[in-house]
Amino acid sequence: MDLTLIDKYFLIEKIGLISAVLAISLLIAMYSTWAERKVAAWIQDRRGPNRAGPFGLLQPLADGGKLFFKEEIIPSTANHFLFVLGPSMAMLTACLTSAVIPWGDVLNFGGYAVSLQIADVNIGVLWIMAVVGMGVYGIMIGGWASNNKFSLLAACRGASQVISYELPMGLALIALFMISGSLSLKDIVEQQRDGLWYVVLQPVGFLIFLICAFAECNRTPFDLPEAENELNGGYHLEYSSMKLGFYLFAEYINMFISSALMATLYFGGYSFPYMDSLGLSPNLVTILGICALFLKTFAFIFFFMWVRWTLPRFRYDQLMKLGWKVLIPLALLNMLITGAVILYRQNGF
């Protein structure tokens, strides 16, 4: 790595970008909890939170305050260090993924170009797979360190679920890379800017990725690790106060990041139709592009919530059957057909 390229401006730019992305993820995760209850209320024909502030907009702040000031209980039989490490790991891995997502094109500040992506590495998507793989640790360490058999059971469920659904997710992504020819998320977005969105070329791959994203985020219908009617509450059963808050918060950050990822990989990211023929200044187009990405992301977040309040939870064996016997063969078939079509288009028969 050429470290001589690092100068003061580069450092300030990147630190600013990282802080901004982190702050926005936290803010969106916070308001996702509010949106979730509003969506649930709307689907179930209720009003939802409407006491704190206009439309209940201050509700997340009130909840956060409550979580901070609640009494903190660490079970005496728990492993203290690991008990604290668990929620920290969950939060860390949830935030790491945002490093490789391109949040927008280039912004120009009087001749100084700022790319709105923290790290444009050519292993972007593999980095996401690596972080997803490490996301298991938060659940497993927390569940085991609680020294409670229900927590441990939930942690085992969570770990095996995440491992099982990583495979079809990776296979679905391989089919996408065969078309794009690049692992860099920036390249993938730029290709969709000029051509079709990849959801048109890879509908099956997108469907598999979507299902796996639900499973990786532990969202209904795959929220087996926190099946409260079987496991008393799941891997965070013994947690209280802000440590519980971290676990719940990490879930919402994961949901936001995977929504942004799906928008980037399959729905054109920050590009939107006719963006190059509007005749606007490049900076304005970049800002509109950011808005487009967030619009797509919010649509996916709404979809996550819609599914949660519509579908019941799967049984554990159904979950495993779906993962191993349906999604993996389907993803392999998708990969095979994609490869055959690419080969045919390159050299005919």
């Binding site: 292993i123 593999l126 980095w127 797979m129 690596a130 997803v132 793989g133 490490m134 298991v136 640790y137 497993m140 360490i141 085991w144 441990l152 942690a155 085992c156 770990a159 491992i163 990583e166």
Partner: peptide
Amino acid sequence: VVHLIVYTGAIMVLFLFVLM
């Protein structure tokens, strides 16, 4: 990235699984 995926993401999870 392969080191992270294979060793920290897969093999060590299995280690941890068995030990736990």
